[in-house]
């Protein structure tokens, strides 16, 4: 599968697809999308890149083991759930910053939670796929 076209395209596709994944993640609250789908798309982007250039190259781009994304994502999600406790509301109450920020839109704990989900999903998928492809 290491054709030149595919290889060249993949290095342009990777950032584009990642941007798309983040786009999907951010629009999730109002339009179809969300952290889970976004995470899957981002993971597919990396998998595509690894198909074209080999897993070693992709690993080189990510720099660290994708498994580390799982605890990071989990803690982000947990923190977003715990944050409302600081202002005296129950666990996982949605808190929102009132003024929308350009490009990103409304910021709130739900978005942060979704970012956590996003990271966990990338971590999980890449860990599984990299592990399996390295083992076989």
């Amino acid at each position: 599968m290491k054709t030149i076209i595919f290889k060249t395209a993949s290095s342009y596709l990777l950032p584009l697809l990642l941007l798309f994944a983040i786009f999907i993640l951010l629009r999730g609250h109002y339009l179809p999308g969300g952290g889970f789908v976004g995470g899957l798309i981002a993971a597919i982007a990396f998998v595509l890149h690894s198909f074209a250039n080999g897993i070693e190259r992709t690993r080189g781009i990510i720099k660290f083991h994708p498994g580390f994304l799982m605890p990071i994502g989990l803690s982000i999600a947990l923190c977003s759930g715990l944050a409302p406790l600081l202002v005296g509301s129950p666990f996982m109450t949605g808190l929102w910053y009132h003024n929308p920020i350009p490009v990103i839109g409304m910021i709130g704990t739900a978005l942060i939670f979704d970012i956590g989900v996003f990271l966990v999903v990338i971590g999980v998928v890449l860990t599984i796929i990299f592990t399996i492809s390295e083992t076989i």
Partner: peptide, 17 residues
Amino acid sequence: AKGKNVVNVILVDFRGS
């Protein structure tokens, strides 16, 4: 929950746990 996408709102807010 200040969201218009009901599916996602359920995922991250109503049934966040």
